[in-house]
């Protein structure tokens, strides 16, 4: 089954197959990404900034210290 790919001379075609494969992934993702909605992008890129409120003392650690 794999004789052609292993034994025969595929040198000339492999780089092209690899390029086409990768380019199709790049272009597909590029297209999908460019089509994403602006408000959705803003929402996603701001997710790290949904801040925690004031930190609370680690109850378990402090309990241990007071034991």
């Amino acid at each position: 089954m794999f004789r052609r790919i292993l034994i025969e001379d595929w040198t000339t075609i492999f780089t092209i197959v690899a390029f086409v494969t990768v380019a199709s992934i790049y272009l597909t993702m590029l297209y999908r990404t460019l089509r994403l909605k602006r408000n959705e992008m803003d929402h996603l890129s701001n997710l790290p900034f949904t801040e925690d409120s004031a930190a609370s003392i680690d109850s378990r650690s402090s309990a241990k210290r007071h034991e």
């Binding site: 990768v22 790049y26 990404t33 890129s45």
Partner: peptide
């Protein structure tokens, strides 16, 4: 990095392309 710089990532779209192309390649 966005947290430390206090501003969102430069391009969220680029981060999406970065992810899929990196994991595939």
């Amino acid at each position: 990095l966005p947290k430390a710089a206090n501003r969102p990532v430069y391009s969220y779209k680029l981060s999406v392309i970065h992810f899929w192309s990196l994991v595939f390649v």
